[in-house]
Design a protein around this nucleic acid. Structure first.
Lengths: 346, 346
DNA sequence: ATCTAGGGTGAATGCGCTTTCAGAAGAGGG
DNA sequence: CCCTCTTCTGAAAGCGCATTCACCCTAGAT
């Protein structure tokens, strides 16, 4: 910059103005400066600019190293799918990128890994005006510290820190609506719910929705899922389905899985056992992954607006950057029931 | 940082060392500093660090605003596909992110848009240690200037600037192999090639491959594609297919399209016309997009390793950051022929 | 010809951190 | 008890830019 200033016969202040507030510089001077910059191959330092102006024009995203183990597993099984199917994190990224672009921000993305002290977050946090975090990516205490200095929004996670903005999808509402549909529209009564690990807030919320539907319909309200899967993968889903079949007592009329992966696994297990879906038993999932459309029968499920999650995160960040004093916001994005053949529809 | 230093009774130099070279500080002192940092909610400024150390730990990617108009169009037609299908840019991002992560870098992404002077590139270029550019994203002259200051790798574009590293896929080889397959294995002779706009280096390279195959087989070598599509979309592909059918003279035995989108459009047009594929005519595409697997008949095509493009880009950047004096590298990634029903295979 | 605005420009300061370069504080050795 | 050798730590000088604040010049007004 000093070179540019010297070469064009002005001070560095003027060079700075040429880039920041072009109108405040006489056109002729401006041209001289730009020409000099071109000749010298001048590239303004974002770092210096950021330091001086205390703002970066960049938003960030931290996501878990293994954002979607199921999809990874799928990918290995079918290398075609690998290139075709978007992971959860891909969709978030796409959503955030679009929204950030609209607001004139660039997006810095980094997957968490164990590193030195503070690790990834530190890297991101120090270089952005604000950032989003996917659930269970960053230690709560780190977030606590960082969120005191800049806007942070938690995506799809519990509200561990009360002054954080956060966004979730309507897991409970979706599952409730799904169960209601099975009960009221298809007349099913004996429903089994297959949940996930206790620490998964999503899976738990979905189970809660299931309970509500049972209560609403006057059916017995279970205290806990009929089964819990550790990994929520297809393999676990298949195992769960078989376990439910082999259980003493009457066979359930419907199996609700906490996610699509498990439901798909169940579909395959049931087929092996010669159990017809949906004639003998209804099966449902949650998420609306691409695979749910392709399996036979197509899976009734609940679609999450994952991309909108990312978009909304950016909106919240931008809002907070404009008005840091506002009350913490807590958004819940609506989901939509997708009725397909696996429950008896279509 | 000054506050942390004061609170823990050391100088800022020591605080800096705690983060940069923890081992050079006595354990006891280190703990005191970290504790103070925690209490104060200290977040190191990436900008300042970058300024002082002249390195950011971030790699960048600039991609076109409309990375893939075809996919966009698809998405509108089928909102399901929108969430499911990865765009070209999504795959590049995924590849780069993975590779960057391995090397300890974060990734800054920004789509180009018309803005002030220098626009997006300036934003990215000033904040990264090096970056990748998708073809036709950044004006050549800007690239020329920037690439004098930091490593830049051009992805899937022509080598406009000779000192730039660049990566392309083996477009010509792939198309050549594809055409060879049609000619030798299926015994076809009258082949028509539908290309893209002249400015599309990919489409041109593919046509070149087609010519080579013709030459190899002793068939007449065309000077130009039988047709050129402006947009390379399904609609254009359909139109092209019909135009070829309606042409005077013998009907071609095979139609080779410069990408899958057009081929898919052609498939549909041919079906409407009652022309059977592959019995009456063979059809092929290029890219290996997800859709190519699903259409009827499944499309014979050439798959590009898009994700690897991103990974390789990062590898090149990292290499050059380690050794900036090296000769410019020019990589060509191999592609793979996918034989499906539309050419008569399977 | 003198005065008054204002637009243009320059000097100087500081953003928060890294990095020599020295100096201080212990640790042994003589 | 003094001297030398390590370890640690502090002082200070930037890194490249944004931003007052003050100043200068040119018009238009008087």
């Amino acid at each position: 910059m000093y070179d540019v200033a010297e070469r064009s016969g002005v001070s560095i202040a003027t060079v700075s103005r040429v880039y920041r507030t072009p109108d405040s510089v006489r056109a002729q001077t401006r041209e001289r400066v730009l020409e000099a910059a071109r000749q010298l191959g001048y590239v303004p330092s974002g770092n210096a600019r950021g330091l001086a102006s205390r703002t970066t024009g960049v938003l960030g995203l931290c996501f878990p190293d293994m954002a979607d183990p199921d999809a990874e597993a799928d990918a290995e099984a079918d290398s075609d799918a690998d290139d075709a199917v978007m992971l959860y994190s891909d969709q978030i990224i796409r959503g955030m990128e679009r929204a950030a672009r609209r607001h004139g921000y660039a997006l810095l993305i980094a997957a968490s890994m164990e590193d030195g002290p503070e690790s990834v977050v530190a890297k991101v946090a120090g270089r952005v005006d604000g950032f989003a975090v996917l659930a269970r990516t960053v230690p709560t205490e780190d977030l606590e510290v960082i969120s005191r200095r800049l806007p942070v929004v938690m995506i799809a996670g519990p509200r561990e820190i009360d002054h954080l903005d956060h966004i979730v999808v309507a897991n409970a509402d979706g599952e409730r609506e799904l169960a209601r549909h099975l009960i009221e529209d298809h007349g099913l009564r004996r429903l089994a719910f297959v949940g996930g690990e206790v620490e998964s807030p999503d899976a738990e919320a979905r189970f809660l929705g299931f309970r509500q539907a049972c209560r609403d319909a006057g059916l017995p309200v279970p205290d806990a899922p009929d089964l819990r899967a550790e990994m929520m993968t297809q393999a676990e889903g298949a195992r769960a389905a078989e376990a439910l079949l082999d259980r003493a007592g009457e066979r359930p009329e419907g199996m609700l899985f906490a996610n699509d992966q498990m439901a798909v696994g169940a579909l395959r297990a049931l087929e092996r056992r010669g159990v017809r879906v949906p004639e003998d038993i209804a099966v449902t999932g949650f998420d609306g992954i691409p695979l749910s459309r392709i399996v036979q029968p197509p899976l009734t499920t609940v679609r999450q607006p994952i991309r909108r999650l990312g978009e909304q995160a950016v909106e919240l960040l931008v809002q907070r950057l404009g008005n840091s004093g506002a009350e913490p916001v807590s958004l819940m994005l609506p989901v939509s029931l997708i009725r397909r053949a696996s429950c008896g529809c279509g």
